[in-house]
Design a protein around this nucleic acid. Sequence first.
DNA 1: ATCGGCTCGCGCAA
DNA 2: TGCGCGAAGCCGAT
Length: 470
Amino acid sequence: MTSTSVIEDSRIQRLNDAPPREGRYVLYWMQQSQRAEFNHALEYAIQQANQHGLRLAVCFGLTDDYPEANARHYRFMLEGLQDTATALRRRKIALVVRKGAPDAVALQLARDAALVVCDRGYLRHQRDWRRRVAEEAGCPVVQVESDVVVPVEVTSPKAEYAARTIRPKIHTHLDDYLIELRTTALDKDSTRIGLDGLDLFDLDSLLDRLDIDHSVPPVSHLFTGGTAQARARLSRFLDERFKRYDENRKRPETDDVTHLGMHLHFGQISPVYVAIQVLESAASKKLKDSFIEELVVRRELAVNFVHYTPKYDSYSCLPDWARRTLAEHKDDEREHRYTRRELETAQTHDRYWNAAMRELRYTGYMHNYMRMYWGKKILEWSGTPSYAYKVALELNNKYFLDGRDPNSFANVAWIFGLHDRPWGERDVYGTVRYMSAAGLERKADIERYVEKIDERVEAARRAGVKFDDA
DNA sequence: ATCGGCTCGCGCAA
DNA sequence: TGCGCGAAGCCGAT
């Protein structure tokens, strides 16, 4: 691994052809990569500011109608932004957070900018924001892709069929992209750039003033947002848990996982940084390989999916064979049927499933292995597969701290056959992969998982996590 | 404990 | 055109 301050050209894209112009500053419109370190967009913006002899402004648009987001997500994100504002100040940069639609905030501040730099998001609304800013800014807009290891179009020009088809494509490029990002010092002190923004100091009152859904409470007692927290989690994982990662990934009663998904979702830590830390650790090659498989291959398969599948959030995103077989079995008799409300409040006959749902509701997280079982049973217990898909995706996005991530859409669709292959045919599922409670009992100490969740729910309640419908 | 079949289609070899 | 093989499994046979 080499050390360099050069940012790979393939991470950088011009989003319009507006001519250069005079301006008071270079603007970095931070929206996805919410961090002050190992952020290619930020370093690129600093380099541009230095080249133009200008100061740098960094802005963030805080909208109160982000699709499906609620107080749980906002709290975690704002904790991270607090952290990021402090870290930027140490680099002589002010973070200007303004209330409003992200594209509108970026355009306000773009009026006095010579150049706008933005980071990259792959969901429909994230792309729409950037398209509008590119069309209306009146100055060059440059997008820098910093939240994947291999840029999405470098990996592949199309929607990949499965992990096995994207895996070799990603591995071909890994060495070219797993490189350190050296920081560049900003020449002109930009601490007092004279742009007013929200005060992030008092998060409670800021959250109160936002017109958002408060029915899902924050889970700060367990998960606090921010780059510092993310780094601490990573180093604790590497020191204490990584050695058991392989054997315990299918054991939800353990906690030998990173819990980095939520930090990656808000861009609070870079996947390139995480991968480098893991590869430089003393662990065995086998462990490193299985970690890279999750962090890079599967995560970037999800990015590939949402990027190249216009309807990534609709039942029609499923492969033909899966929709065909599920349609053939849609009238099969269901042994159990539950309403969305019964599912949401964890009132089924299945104690394991209820524990998984309660983990999600009260902690904002669910063990990776239980996510599969959780989704498969929603398919099994719903009237139709397309309704099951809708319910699974909605519950996922409402309660997971990292809901609405590309991974959310890929993981939920996987339940219904995406990126998978057919298996033995049975009722309701057709040839879509089935999972059983017996499998959990065989592979894990599932009773201990149920006990662990009972304790965790109790702790959450003591910390003030409460629901009106409970 | 371990193994093969289940069942579809991609991607590569020929 | 044929063939190997696959995002995390299940089940029954041995």
